[in-house]
Write a protein that binds this DNA or RNA. Structure first.
Length: 575
RNA sequence: CGGGGCGUGGCGCAGUCUGGUAGCGCACCUGCUUUGGGAGCAGGGUGUCGGAGGUUCAAAUCCUCUCGCCCCGACCA
């Protein structure tokens, strides 16, 4: 490609709307432009990167035996009503009506559509296993789009759906996808980890997220330093302490009311009563599908709402507002306690061994001391309700834990029969018996993968693309376009590299060298060839890798072969 | 939806408090010089100051309403 005939509108200055590095660089390098909040145009350079990721995905998905299809973006409400998600999915689902007043939505995901297809077309165990995938534009009406293409409303996603005869076969399909995803992200040049995750609104029984490690990531993940355990923080289990320790030996003291004027937070309370946070129990009132529930958490712990939501089987779970808290406890927020509380009480395992705890008194400006389970109140259920902390051991091997941030680029779900049951997708087995199909679903955010790669590979001059997803593999910078020798050598090199199948960008603009260098660095093309009158006197051209600082000189005659080899070598280093 | 901030030429911003008829840098166009890391000089074009209404002799500036965008939070792949 010739720069002068192409379209790469770069910015010297950072647009003020961008916050994270990948967003800034994608705007500056002329990869994307925003149309409106959370909706972006991919400019030629951005599209090239997207296509490279898509091609890697296609190759690996095809290799895994999956079959490509393309489903509609617009979906009828009936399908969603059938699966129950028309109600469950919430405001994130973009709904609208057509001219006949029929309800529809813009697909945020395609379980319903594919299940509908499969129930019509797949009838025999002989037709499975089968896995359909597509690469397509999705729309999710995010509450707050941000970070450019990383968390946007309209985005390109690869989604795949596997169909199997039983759970064991579905597990196999899941494992194949897990492996396929690892191959894909490795080939994209990413440092990533697969972690255990919650299934969210997609549903199902089990899932892994593929996380690209980056400080700007929106998710927090926890790893074991000893074993292979890794999980999203919202999923990470906390094992109950087997030995409650010294506190259980303590004698129960008489219940005591203490005035705590205007003391509402744990910090204020620890300071006011000169106690440590782990002697306090906080009582959080939640509204679970409209019903009040109390969650008891030790003062120094944080509640994990995902765990609570799953435990309660709730569709909607939110922290109660002032009215509900007042209604349930008879006191303003900050003074709730379990004693004489008339709602369901779920307590974290960490509460179990506690004696003489401090809790709210369900009276304004009052707390209770020496509260004891059994004597003063009873717990409906003990469970793992809290966020794991660096002080906790690994739930698998009890080893020490490490915490990092990550960007979710892929997610694999074991769905089981959730959709096949709701939508009656069945097959006949070898005995002529009708059975439910077992499903799995597998997503990759394509644009987000590009952004994550940039997030992970950049310096102050710009992007440093892994060669596998770089818009161009090589950029040629002829420094003096009016020098006929420079022009001629550049043209010849450009042609011969193109003929060898290398993606080359020839910066044939008649501008100063400095601008070409700056742009080349910004765009992040892995291999840079500089051709100037100076080195041409010795019949040499320069090669520099974007990821390295040293420059090497190559005889003009050997350049095409040498550079093509280098490109191949860079590709091989990523495989 | 709650809290905060911002809308002034293509981009980044000043000017708003204290009203007086719009400015700076970059980019862009022309010419000359320059030419290996975002050039220099000279000349030039560019704005219904987000929109609507109001106050005023006069509004980018003050008031009311409205739209959009960004950040934090709740939410989410």
């Amino acid at each position: 490609m010739r720069y002068s005939k192409y379209f790469i509108p770069t910015y010297k200055e950072t647009p003020s709307e961008a916050e994270v590095i990948s967003h800034k660089l994608m705007l500056r390098a002329g990869m994307i432009r925003k149309l409106t909040s959370g909706i972006y145009t991919y400019l030629p350079l951005g599209l090239r990167s997207i296509r490279k990721v898509e091609n890697i995905i296609r190759e690996e998905m095809d290799r895994s035996g999956a079959i490509e299809v393309l489903m509609p973006a617009v979906q009828p409400a009936e399908l969603w009503q059938e699966s129950g998600r028309w109600e469950a999915y919430g405001r994130e689902l973009l709904r609208f009506k057509d001219r006949h007043n029929r309800e529809a939505c813009f697909g945020p995901t395609h379980e319903e559509v594919i299940t509908d297809l499969v129930r019509k077309e797949i009838h025999s165990y002989r037709q499975m296993p089968i896995n359909f995938y597509q690469i397509q534009t999705k729309f999710r009406d995010e509450i707050r789009p941000r970070f450019g293409v990383m968390r946007c409303r309209e985005f390109i996603m690869k989604d795949a759906y596997s169909f199997d005869v039983d759970e064991a076969a579905a597990d196999k399909s899941y494992d194949v996808m897990h492996q396929t995803y690892s191959n894909i992200f490795r080939r994209c040049g990413l440092k990533f980890r697969a972690v255990e995750a919650d299934t969210g609104s997609i549903g199902g029984s089990f899932s892994h997220e593929f996380m690209v490690l980056a400080d700007t990531g929106e998710d927090e993940i926890v790893f074991c330093k000893k074993c292979s355990y890794a999980a999203n923080l919202e999923k990470a289990e906390v094992k109950p302490v087997e030995d409650p320790g010294a506190s259980s030996a303590e004698k129960a003291k008489p219940l005591e009311e203490v005035p705590t004027p205007d003391i509402k937070t744990i910090e204020e309370l620890t300071a006011f009563l000169s106690v440590s946070a782990d002697q306090i129990v906080k009582t959080l009132i939640f509204s679970s599908d409209g019903n009040a529930v109390a969650a008891l958490i030790r003062g120094d712990h944080e509640v994990n709402e995902t765990k609570l939501k799953n435990l309660l089987g709730a569709e909607q779970l939110e922290l109660a507002g002032p009215e509900l808290v007042a209604h349930v406890t008879g006191a303003p927020i900050g003074f709730a306690g379990p004693v004489e509380l008339r709602v369901k009480i779920i307590a974290d395992y960490a509460i179990k061994g506690m004696k003489n705890m401090i809790t709210g008194a369900n009276k304004q400006d009052m707390h209770l001391k020496n509260v004891n389970i059994g004597r003063d109140f009873s717990v409906d259920k003990f469970a793992d309700l809290r966020m794991i902390t660096p002080a906790d051991p690994c739930p698998r091997c009890r080893g020490p834990l490490d915490f990092k941030r990550g960007i979710e680029v892929g997610h694999v779900f074991k769905l089981g029969t959730k959709y096949s049951k709701a939508m009656h997708a069945v097959y006949l087995d070898e005995h002529g018996e009708e059975k439910l199909i077992f499903m799995g679903c597998y997503g990759i955010g394509v644009g987000r993968t590009v952004a994550a790669a940039i997030e992970q590979n950049n310096d102050r001059d710009g992007i440093i693309f892994p060669i596998t997803i770089a818009p161009f593999e090589v950029v040629i910078l002829p420094l003096q376009m009016q020098n006929s020798n420079v022009g001629q050598v550049s043209e010849e090199l450009y042609r011969s590299l193109s003929d060898k199948g290398v993606d080359v960008l020839l910066d044939d603009r008649d501008i100063r060298a400095g601008i070409k260098f700056k742009d080349a660095d910004l765009l992040g093309t892995p291999v840079r060839i500089t051709i100037g009158a100076r080195t041409l006197k010795e019949a040499k051209v320069e090669m520099k890798l974007r990821s390295q600082t040293q420059t090497i000189f190559i005889p003009v005659s050997e350049a095409p072969g040498f550079i093509a080899d280098k490109v191949r070598e860079l590709h091989d280093s990523i495989k």
